Structures are given as C-alpha cells and as structure tokens.
Amino acid sequence: MDEPRGDYWYNLVTGKVEVGAQSDWTQLIGPYASREEAEHAIEKVHERNRSWEQGEED
C-alpha cells in the first residue's frame, strides 16, 4: 500500500517520521512532500542554523 504524498512530519522528540501529524504541533516540523524529505529535516535545520550563525558573525 502506498503512503500518501505531502503529509510527512519529522518529530523532534522521537526523531521519527510521522505520516500525518500524529503528535502535538510543538514537537513537529513539516509537512514534507515525501518520507525521505522528512527523514532529512533535522539536517536541513542544522544547516540553516549554521548558515544563519555565520551571517551574524560577518
């Protein structure tokens, strides 16, 4: 059975992907279009934070 597209969330507490927002919104980032995109969500967050911090140093 195929999973729906466009309703994947990364749970910051568990570190797992949820299909549909199953947890409290304060624990989630998303939605993402695919499971793979959601699985890499925290990496993107860290990447953007580093970029933002470097911008402040300049």
Results as ranks from 00 to 15, higher is better:
residue 10 Y to E: 00
residue 45 V to Q: 07
residue 23 S to D: 13
residue 3 E to P: 12
residue 54 Q to L: 13
residue 38 A to N: 02
residue 57 E to R: 15
residue 26 T to K: 15
residue 29 I to K: 07
residue 28 L to E: 03
residue 16 K to F: 08
residue 39 E to V: 04
residue 37 E to D: 12
residue 24 D to S: 15
residue 11 N to V: 07
residue 46 H to V: 06
residue 20 G to T: 08
residue 52 W to Y: 13
residue 14 T to N: 03
residue 37 E to K: 05
residue 41 A to N: 04
residue 3 E to S: 13
residue 52 W to L: 08
residue 17 V to F: 07
residue 40 H to E: 13
residue 36 E to Y: 12
residue 24 D to G: 12
residue 47 E to P: 00
residue 2 D to M: 05
residue 43 E to A: 12
residue 35 R to M: 05
residue 15 G to E: 03
residue 36 E to V: 08
residue 12 L to V: 02
residue 10 Y to I: 00
residue 39 E to D: 11
residue 21 A to Q: 11
residue 3 E to W: 11
residue 33 A to N: 14
residue 51 S to A: 15
residue 54 Q to T: 02
residue 35 R to C: 06
residue 21 A to R: 09
residue 45 V to Y: 13
residue 13 V to H: 04
residue 56 E to F: 10
residue 27 Q to E: 08
residue 15 G to A: 03
residue 22 Q to T: 14
residue 53 E to D: 09
residue 36 E to D: 08
residue 18 E to Y: 07
residue 42 I to G: 01
residue 9 W to A: 04
residue 16 K to P: 01
residue 19 V to N: 13
residue 7 D to V: 11
residue 10 Y to T: 00
residue 7 D to K: 10
residue 54 Q to P: 00
residue 5 R to K: 13
residue 29 I to T: 09
residue 39 E to Q: 15
residue 49 N to D: 03
residue 12 L to T: 09
residue 29 I to A: 06
residue 13 V to D: 11
residue 4 P to L: 15
residue 30 G to Q: 00
residue 46 H to C: 14
residue 46 H to I: 10
residue 34 S to H: 11
residue 51 S to L: 14
residue 57 E to V: 09
residue 32 Y to T: 01
residue 11 N to H: 11
residue 49 N to R: 11
residue 37 E to Q: 10
residue 13 V to G: 00
residue 46 H to T: 08
residue 24 D to H: 13
residue 35 R to T: 02
residue 43 E to I: 11
residue 56 E to D: 13
residue 17 V to E: 01
residue 49 N to M: 04
residue 37 E to Y: 03
residue 17 V to P: 01
residue 45 V to R: 07
residue 23 S to V: 01
residue 8 Y to S: 02
residue 25 W to K: 12
residue 3 E to Y: 14
residue 14 T to A: 13
residue 57 E to G: 03
residue 41 A to C: 02
residue 20 G to N: 13
residue 21 A to S: 10
residue 10 Y to D: 01
residue 17 V to Q: 00
residue 4 P to Q: 13
residue 49 N to L: 14
residue 49 N to W: 02
residue 51 S to R: 12
residue 36 E to T: 14
residue 44 K to H: 07
residue 28 L to R: 03
residue 15 G to K: 01
residue 41 A to E: 03
residue 46 H to Y: 14
residue 57 E to S: 10
residue 43 E to S: 06
residue 16 K to M: 11
residue 5 R to A: 11
residue 57 E to N: 12
residue 27 Q to H: 04
residue 3 E to D: 14
residue 50 R to K: 14
residue 10 Y to P: 01
residue 15 G to W: 04
residue 13 V to K: 13
residue 9 W to P: 00
residue 53 E to V: 08
residue 19 V to I: 15
residue 2 D to H: 07
residue 4 P to R: 15
residue 25 W to I: 10
residue 56 E to A: 08
residue 55 G to S: 10
residue 46 H to F: 10
residue 57 E to A: 14
residue 11 N to P: 06
residue 38 A to Q: 01
residue 7 D to Y: 01
residue 55 G to R: 05
residue 3 E to I: 09
residue 39 E to S: 15
residue 36 E to C: 07
residue 27 Q to W: 05
residue 56 E to Q: 14
residue 17 V to G: 03
residue 19 V to H: 09
residue 34 S to G: 09
residue 29 I to C: 06
residue 56 E to K: 15
residue 57 E to Q: 14
residue 50 R to G: 05
residue 15 G to F: 02
residue 47 E to S: 15
residue 29 I to Q: 02
residue 32 Y to P: 02
residue 28 L to A: 02
residue 56 E to R: 15
residue 34 S to D: 09
residue 40 H to Q: 15
residue 14 T to W: 05
residue 28 L to F: 10
